[in-house]
Design a protein around this nucleic acid. Sequence first.
DNA 1: ATCCTAACGCAACATTCGTCGCATTAGGGA
DNA 2: TCCCTAATGCGACGAATGTTGCGTTAGGAT
Lengths: 194, 194
Amino acid sequence: MTGTDRASRPGGRTARVRADVLAAVEAELAEHGYDGLTIDAVAARSGVHRTTVYRRWKTVAGLLVDLLQAGADDAWEPADTGSLEGDLIAVNREVHAALTARPSVTQAVIAASFRTPEAAEALTQFWVDRYERTAVVVRRAVERGEIPAGTDAHQLLLTATGPLYHQLVLLRRPMSRSIADQHARVAAKSLCGA
Amino acid sequence: MTGTDRASRPGGRTARVRADVLAAVEAELAEHGYDGLTIDAVAARSGVHRTTVYRRWKTVAGLLVDLLQAGADDAWEPADTGSLEGDLIAVNREVHAALTARPSVTQAVIAASFRTPEAAEALTQFWVDRYERTAVVVRRAVERGEIPAGTDAHQLLLTATGPLYHQLVLLRRPMSRSIADQHARVAAKSLCGA
DNA sequence: ATCCTAACGCAACATTCGTCGCATTAGGGA
DNA sequence: TCCCTAATGCGACGAATGTTGCGTTAGGAT
């Protein structure tokens, strides 16, 4: 026996179908937004049959989850600017760019996460991973002596990014990049009273 | 001529139907959450016919919007504790309670806002109103001399409440009340470097 | 008390959504 | 090259969702 997984065939056609479908998802997303994202429309545009899409991705949210994972940058890491404030500003600018892009895949995935638990779980895992990686900016700040050793990295990052997500995603109001920077500065100085 | 709106009849039966339907919405929400909230189920429970619900509320989101507006407390105003920090802590505790309640009508309406533009608009208006009313805590702090006169109230409130919404709604992770308090304190002291 | 009509109930219809059984195609190993 | 079968295509089906036309009921004004 070979010992490999017998029940999979990720070869040529399967990969091509996946690429076509995900491309169609992105295109439909750009044209009609998340609301107009239908399995039928994706199937029609990609040239793949409805049934195939249903079988492999199950739901609209599943399509977006796959798109999210396909586009996940495994090599991502936060910028190192030399100061906590600079690092947090860089992080906030990335978040700001992702949320104000048109169309925003991030916004679409967030919307999907409110429909099916699978999408919610995938998005949560994505963010857990991202916030864990970003925690290094706090550790570097501790090593530089900018902030005390016991600082809660997640809470600090939440202070920086939370206002952006709330304003741009939930309140659905605009936010300038400079205001986003200011929230990063507030977070960086949030320990001055401690 | 009377000059009143001729095309409306908000009388007895109409009001009763509305009350029954909204009560059914709340009950269904409590039992099955937002996912299990179906127009058919609401109609069946309320004893009102499907068609009537479709005609008056159109969508599931419309039902929640109406529930939100019906439950909007027009007399609401933030607590006055005597200090900016105390006021912000009180605000954050209200937000925390609303988001961690089970079932949370707020969470349900947020989910609905990602489905139809009408729900999104209603929720945005609701929050705009709430944040405007809450701005009085900042004005009081300015009068007491706690913070400078030019302080941006919305930005300050965003610093306090943003992390809560992000953690509890988008990241879908728990947050203790004491951490919520801490975010309020961070916001209150966010101007120490200015 | 009587009339008008907005709002509602009812049933049939149309559409969309998701599933199932079976035939066909095309990787990939022997 | 040949064979096996995973993956896809295809059409039909059932269920859920939303719509329409029409008859009936009950506010509310006269």
